[in-house]
């Protein structure tokens, strides 16, 4: 093992230890709030792990969605779900059950570890074939090629899942709130640090988000990561009270939400005509078509994530004044 091999091993070991420590803290933390903070830390450490595993796309996604968006949602929820300590302590299982659960979970983890170690080391994957097939499509990033071309159906179904998850979240509100604005109303702050951040950060964030979405076809990045950054910018402005969430019944919001998957379906169906089947791209037009879909998807992902963070409408619709 060369010197930097050893160093890399030490770094990986340290990183793994930190990740597990953060995970342990998330479980063992006394209250929900510190646990959530621990989870955000865990997410960032995990992003480093993904970089070490040679998956920059996934590292970006983990940072943006796995840690960022999930962290925001959980923090908002922890703040609003205070109380119920005695109910929680009553429902916590006794020592024997905890021990048994620990043993069982440990056994499953151990079996999994053994199985992972027993996996064939030069795993029979599709790395070579995927990489080889990406270039003729005019794409640089094999992950984008897999997401948009080879396994396009997965991405399509997943974007449809996002759309109707938003509707599912909206439908959790009581009937009288239908038509109202999603999520809590933040007071408008005209001065103070948050107002400064809300005015300074979004322009920079928009540029970065669009850049990441744009560069996705050739370098690590893509619609999910870019979309999340755009959504984050909207959340910052919304939290500072500078913008209001659009009404649930607003036709424009629904069009934005549905744009991505609908464009994907239409291009897919067009594939019957111009290419040799559903979701097939004619070689010449592959890249431009994919970029069109990516743009629409970025828009939809941004809208969907922002609305998922906002949550169901909490007030009845204001009478049209």
């Amino acid at each position: 093992m060369t010197l930097d091999g050893v160093l890399a091993g030490v770094l990986d070991g340290l990183l793994a230890a930190l990740v597990l420590a953060a995970a342990g803290w998330t479980l063992a933390a006394p209250a929900a709030f510190p646990a959530t903070i621990g989870f955000v830390g865990f997410g960032l450490l995990l992003t480093l792990a993904w970089v070490r595993l040679g998956a920059p796309d996934v590292a970006l996604t983990e940072a943006a969605i796995g840690t960022g968006a999930t962290g925001v949602i959980l923090l908002l929820a922890v703040v609003r779900l205070r109380g119920g300590e005695e109910e929680v302590s009553a429902a916590t299982p006794g020592r024997a059950l905890v021990l048994a659960a620990g043993l069982l979970a440990g056994a499953v983890g151990l079996a999994l570890a053994l199985a992972v170690l027993a996996l064939p080391d030069p795993a029979p994957g599709l790395a070579a074939e995927a990489a080889a097939r990406t270039a003729p499509l005019g794409l640089g990033n094999p992950v984008a090629a897999v997401l948009m071309v080879f396994r396009g159906l997965d991405t399509l179904l997943e974007s449809v899942v996002l759309v109707f998850t938003v509707l599912a979240v909206w439908s959790m509100a009581p009937d009288r709130h239908w038509g109202g604005r999603p999520g809590p109303e933040f007071p408008r702050q005209d001065d103070g640090p948050l107002a400064l951040l809300a005015r300074l950060l979004p322009p920079v964030g928009l540029v970065i988000g669009i850049y990441i979405a744009w560069v996705g076809t050739d370098a690590p990045g893509g619609k999910f990561q870019g979309g999340t950054i755009l959504a984050a910018m909207w959340v910052v402005a919304w939290a500072a009270g500078l913008v209001q969430a659009p009404s649930v019944a607003d036709r424009r919001v629904r069009l934005m939400l549905v744009a991505g998957p609908l464009v994907f379906v239409l291009v897919g169906l067009a594939g019957f005509g111009i290419a040799d089947g559903f979701l097939a791209y004619p070689p010449a037009l592959a890249k431009p078509l994919i970029l069109v879909i990516e743009a629409a998807m970025t828009l939809s992902v941004a809208a969907a994530l922002a609305l998922l963070i906002a949550g169901p409408p909490e007030h009845p619709p204001e009478r049209v004044t």
Binding site: P193, L194, L197, L201, V204
Partner: peptide, 16 residues
């Protein structure tokens, strides 16, 4: 740019 953004967010968070 990374450094600048960390500065901005760090300051805001500290203030809040």
């Amino acid at each position: 740019l990374v450094w600048a953004l960390v500065l901005l967010s760090g300051a805001t968070a500290a203030q809040l």
